[in-house]
Every structure is written in C-alpha cells, then in structure tokens.
Design a protein around this nucleic acid. Sequence first.
RNA 1: GGGUGAUUAGCUCAGUUGGUUAGAGCGCUACCUUGACAUGGUAGAGGUCAGAGGUUCGACUCCUCUAUCACCCACCA
Length: 905
Amino acid sequence: MQQSVMSANLEKTYNHHDVERRWSSAHWESEGIFEAESFRVLDEGRKPYTVLMPPPNVTGSLTLGHVLNHTLQDIFIRYQRMSGREALWLPGTDHAGIATQTVVEKKLRETGVSRYDLGRKEFLERVWKWRDEYGGLILKQLRKLGISCDWRRNLFTMDESASKAVRHTFVTLYREGLIYRGKRIINWCPVSQTALSDEEVIMKPRKDKLVYVRYHLAKRPGEYITIATVRPETILADVAIAVNPDDPRYAGLIGELAVVPVAGRHVPIIADEYVDKEFGTGALKITPAHDPNDFEVAGRHNLPVLCVVGRDGKMIDEFGYAGLDRFDAREKIIDDLEKRGNLVKVEGYEHNVGYSERAGVVVEPYLSEQWFVKMKPLAEKALQVVNDGEIRFHPSHWISTYRHWMENIRDWCISRQLWWGHRIPAWYGEEGKIWVAESYEDACHIAGTDKLIQDEDVLDTWFSSWLWPLTTLGWTGQHDDNDDMRAFYPTDTLVTAPDIIFFWVARMIMAGLYFKGDVPFRDVYFTSIIRDMKGRKLSKSLGNSPDPLKVMDAYGTDALRFTIVYIAPLGQDVLFGEEKCEFGRNFATKIWNAARLVFMQRERVFGSMDEFGKSYPRFTPEIESLSDAQRWILGRYNKMLASYHKAFSQFRMNDITRIVYDFFRSDYCDWYLETLKIELAGETDRSKSRHAVSLAVHLLEGVLKVLHPVMPFITEEIWHHILERQSSESIARSVMPQVEEHWMNDEQEASFNAVQNVVSEARSLRAVFGVPHDMEARLVISAPDESAREIFVANTHIVMQMTGCTVKISRGELQRPPHSASSVVDGNELFMPLEGLISFDKEIARLEKELGNVSSYVKRMEKKLANKGFVDNAPAEVIEGERRKLGEAKSNLEKLQANLEVLCD
RNA sequence: GGGUGAUUAGCUCAGUUGGUUAGAGCGCUACCUUGACAUGGUAGAGGUCAGAGGUUCGACUCCUCUAUCACCCACCA
C-alpha cells in the first residue's frame, strides 16, 4: 500500500522537471496503468479502442514529427480510456532493413572489415547485438514524451511471431499466384547494392547534359543518324536505334544498320510508336539493360540485352571503361566521341532523376531477377473500402491521392539484396527448381530432397510492416484467431504522416482485407508535416531541426505537447520554432497558479484537507445556492465540454486545445476566479463559502481531466492535490466529464455578460481618461430594464472591486451627471463623473467617433431591413435578430447624442 | 503534364453547416509588482479577409478565373 505523497497545497513555483520525474513512464509501467486485457473486453462485451503505433526505426531517434504523431495518438487513447473504454495502444519498432544494415556496416568499415569478411551469420549476430545495445533509444525517448502505450506488448518486426507471419503470408501469396519471380528492370541502389521499390525512389530535378551523337550507317558510307541521350556511357550497350514509324525524316532508314560508336557493333534501325518525334532528333538509342522503356521496346522487337553497368554503379569490363564509375565514364565517353568525330553537340538539360531514398545517390535501372507481388488484385478491395467510407481519412482529401495510386498501381518489388531482414522463404533445388515453404523442413518435404539452397535475399522491410495490424495482436497466420485478435481487431485510429500513405497505409489495408477479411483500422489521421519558421522541411543538413529532448528539458514536456498540437491544424503543414513552446509553458504556469489560488482558498475555508475530503467526493453544485457568476461559469463550462467532445468526434485536434485554453484563460481565470476571490472575501456564511470553493475545485478538476490527454504530467500532479490519493491512482483512469445541458442557459449567460461588459467599459473609461489606479472613482449605472437593474444590484460588489469605483445604480430617467465620461453598453448607460480630470474636448471627440460608428451601423441595418428581398427570404429568426440589433443600436444612438448634448451645453 | 492544399492584423494562425460592427497568441503602446500568477493583469493601436468576376436578400464562408507559394504523382531519351 503506497501512501499519498501530496500535501494540500502546491509549491510556489511550477517545476516541470520534478513533476515529470514523479509521474514518469517507469512509475506507470510498474503500476500497469496503461495495460489492456482482451479478456476484460470479451467478458464485458464493450467495444475496445485500439491504436496502432507506426513503429519507429530501431536506428531512429526522436524527431518533432514523432512528437506530434505520438502526442496525437496519446491524446486519442487517453481520451477513450477516460471515456470508459478498454484502450489498447500497441507499440513496437521496425527493423528498417537498409537503414540498420548501413549503420552497422559503417561501424564495421571503421575497423576495416566488410560484411563479406564476416560472413552472413556472423554479420547478423553483430546487427542483433547492435540492436540490443542501441536500438532502444527511440523507445526511451518516447517514454519521456509520456505516452501511454501498453509497453508489455512491444513488438519488433523481426521477433519470431512476426517473422512467422511474414513467412506464412509469403507462402500463401505465392501459392495463390500473387507472388512471382521475374527478370525485370528494377530500381537499383549502387551504394546499398540492392533493389528498391518504386516508392523508395525520390524524383529530383538534376542538371545533366543532353549529348547528340552521330551513328554512321554501316552500308551507306558517309551517311549517319543522330540521336540525343543523357546517358552516353550506355551507348556501349545499345542494341538498336529507334525512330517513330510516322516520321518522314527517317522513313528511308528503317531496316538499315547503324554502327555503335566506340563499340563498333552493327545495330538495326527500327520503328516504334514509343519514340517521340518532337524530342531531341526524333531518333532514340535502345539500351534495354539500362532503361525500362528500352527494355520494353527491345521485347517487342526481339532484341538482345547487353549490360555495361554493374551492381556497384561501375562500368563492366568492356571497351576500356572497366571499373570506371558511371559518371566518370560519361565524361570519358564524351571525350572519346569527340575524338572520333561522333559528337555533334552537348546541350544543358534539366530533368527529373530518381534518387535512392536512403543512400541519396542516383538510382540505376538494373536488369535482374527479383520477387514481386501482384498488386492489382489486392488493390481493388482496398480502394473500395476507402471509397465506401469503411475506412475514413482525416482530412478526407487524401482519398483522391490514395485513389489515384490504387488505380495506377504497379507490382511491388519485394526482394532486397541485403542480409538484415526476413530471408525469403524460397529454396532452389537442382536445375533451378523453386520450392516456397514456411521452413527448410517443409521445403525439403515437398521437394523430396534435402539438397536445397535458400534464396540469398531478404524481403523489403515494408513486407513485415504491412502486417503490423495483425502481428501486433499476435497473429502468425498459423491459427486464425486468438483472444487479442477477437477483442481488438480491427483497430480504430491510425495516426501517421501522409508521406507513407503508399508505403504503409495502403498496403496495410490490402493485407488486412486479404489475410483477415476485414479492414485493419477505421480512421486514418494524417498529421501535419513540421517545417521550420521559414517553411523549410526539417532536415539534419540544414541544421533547422530542434532536438525535442532539449525542448522538453527547457520548456517542459507538457508545454511541447500542448504547443505542437495547438499549432498543428488538420491537414496543413505547421511552422515550428522552439520559442513557440513559450506559449505552452506559460499556459502550464497559468494552470499551476490558478490551482494554487483555488487550493489556498480551500485551505482558508476548510482548514484541512481531511475536512474538505469529507464532503468533496459527493459534491454537486446546488442551483439555489449559486451566484450569478457561478451559474454563468457552469454554463460556460458545459458549453466548453460540448465543443470539446464534438471536436474529438471530428478529429479537430488543434481545436480541442484551443477550446480548453480559451475557456480556462478567459472564463475560468480572468472572470470566474476573480469573482470567486471577491465573493469569498465578503462571505460570512461558512457553508456558502464551502460550496463556492468546492465548485471551484470541481471545475478545476474538470479542466484538468479534459486537458489531461494533452498535458498528462501537470494535470496528474495537480489532480493528486485535489484529494488525498494513492500514488498508484491516476487521472488517466478517472472519468471524463460529460455535458450537463441543464446548466446551459443563454439568458443567464447574457445577464452576467452585461455585468462583465459594464466592468470592461468602466475600466476602459478609467484607462482612457487616465484616472490614477489608486483613486476611487464614482460609477453611475443607469439600467432602464428592471431585470438588468436587479443583476447589477446583486453584483454591485463585483463591479466595485473590479473597477475600483463606488457604484450607484439608478433607473433610466436619471439626471445625467455633469462633467462625466459616459458610455452605452447593452442598453445600459455608464457615467463616470470626473471633475477636474476630464478633458471635454477629448470626451467630445470620443463620443463623436462612437456616434459615427453607431450611426453608420444604424444606416446599414435600416437599409438591410428595408430591402424587400431580405425580409422576404431570410429566415424569421434572422430578421428578428437584425431588428433587435437595430433597435439596440438606435437606442444607443439616442443616448450617445443626449450625453454629447450635456457636454456641449 | 496531371492532382491536392494554402493566401485573414507586423509575425504565427482561429473563424464548425453563408446571417458578428472579423477573433486569439506573439510583438507593439500605456498603466499596474493588488495575498494565485510579471512565464502575470487591465486597457489600447493595428485588417478594403490575395485580385477579378459570379451565385444569393446577404459571401471571410459557395462557384469560376487569375496571381503567388507549397506539396504529391508522372518512363519521354
């Protein structure tokens, strides 16, 4: 049994370090507070809420993108958990094939060793060791963020259960004809020396040279054909020249033989529709091994395939270029062509070129045998569920992007020439026969031999990622269901950056539908992309990427979380500078100080925490003992709750921070707490004081709860001061406040607004006329309406305290006090007699300006109401409202004029 | 070449189905260290809502075009 660690009051200054330490992730893990159990769901039958964490790379460290992403997920999960649902957040990390292998290889190279020196087995041991030592960093950092996932369920994409699922799905898809092996031109990364999928290639503009080269005709001495190319080094692998069949310039040359420069080979001139007459010279060299289009053309014309660039991006031993890098070879061959007289000209040329996402080098189209997934059959249903709204995107405009990709989908190259990853479960027997099975034993069994050699390659990392909604719940494909799957699948909300919509989101949808027959999640929330204050993408090379850990340290984790959500609107980029966190930090400080005030008043009124604890747990506001200010704040509070819950249901996450912030700053602190101080100071009835303080605490607790999903630390800390609580208890397991509509009352709100407006206006008069703050001024409030007068009478003490004036309330037909500054608000008039202080000219000018504003408004409204179209078409309530406004404005106008006349007499 | 989003105060942004005399934070100006809070309070200055048309009784809000800025997709050498 742990004891309460709290004293009744808060420390004078808010120290986020202490608070974050006290309520750290380690604390909650030991209490099991964020754990979810499938049996609890199955027994009680409540629908659980499940969030899938996009698994960060093991090599990664925390970025602001993670902060936004994971904070949002945490907000969703905490909100649902507090709304009484079993809430499961599934964490994990991704083995990140290329990235991780690159990191470890680099470390090895520093000691002068290559992975080939070690051999596959030894190398993989080193990678696992590296992962165990350094791979946990990102998870540690995420814990610092205070996120509430069920860490027991942490999954690594290469854990045995996940690997089993990978093998199972590969075998299944192979047997169903959806996975095949084929010789194709794929994207080859010469640095990582592996194939890449289309999605791993980034197109970037690049300045190159467009080289015009003259090919002599073999049988027509002195004649030639000129082509244009940006890759002259691949001339050596040319197998044809192609022209458009409709191009009159070359009609006579079709069927002729051209001589490939340097190589000296004779190649045919062929006609193919693919060739664009307008581009370059209208003649195109065909190099099937080094260009996907050429490969297709070659296929159509039964041309051979020659290869001159190797897997390392260097030229293959031919014509004296062996070992030269492709870019060096390009320069050399331009030289050689010039020497031989084949070079016509060189033009500057900017075009888009594919770069390897990881290594950042130009991708080489490379002919090789790879494994592919047939995507079209998988895409159909996956498109349909999004079109039908079975899966919803937020913001919804991403649907069109998704649709476009799905409709033009191409097969997915899934083999990688790496060692780190899931090894392809395919074995080769004699004569290259392929056996695909979940294990070597199975393969031997079906092959009827044990002389099998496993495919050397591993699978694309995303081949395990697309199973994430299944594998995180323990699915291995072997048995179709388990308790977790039954309870938690499909998951609910996926929060992810839009840049992996194709890599990941789309493929998870396909896998979920194909292997489980149901969508993997219901809602996809695409987060903002974070940029710096100048709108540039955050990147290490620009040095504009703040370290979130330093920001958390400087401003507080709650401050960072609050700020980043506040400034990140749905579907738009966000400009972030760490100084923006001052906003969140100041807000946290404000909460702390407001709570201090409330707790100090509690101590004064109740004496001790014990005394307070006797009644507070059963506290509900009693309407008959409430002041106007208290009824007003209860109305505002419930309105806030209503918009808060609505914003949640609509995924407007930045709005929820705004809604609570506005309520707390303007209504709770600026008005309600100020009135509380005044009311308590003048209250002699102890039970009324106690009721007032209990209400203040009650509202504070409500605010803490609605804020808790965003700011878990400070809300936890203050919540533990509300009552004596065990340190094992958490606000995270408390019940989210719901709207109580009977507190919302527009009339009541308006009447207290009238008091507020009089206060503001009186303060304004004081400020404008420079009444010294320590001087007590006089204020005459003239309220023609009986009920308004009652409100002012009832709240005289508040107006007096807040304005520093003595207050007199009178009927409408008063004698206008001379030498007064005056103002009209809500049909009530204010006079502040200021003999000696007031400058008549200044007041006249002020009134005239106001008069001008009001009279132009009146004119506009009269015109509007005289407009037949408006009166005939607008809804009755709108017309009613406009009439009322006009009436008020007219009455204001009269009063202003009267006041002006008094001054001018 | 297609597609998507943005353009509101000096800066960063709200403005929920069309009906407000268009709001907030930061910054700026003045006053205030009052028993929660100067990481604060009170008051104030500051905007022809990118431009041009259109729909409508009524447009920051809906439609079209233009301009500017982003991003995504696309095999033209």
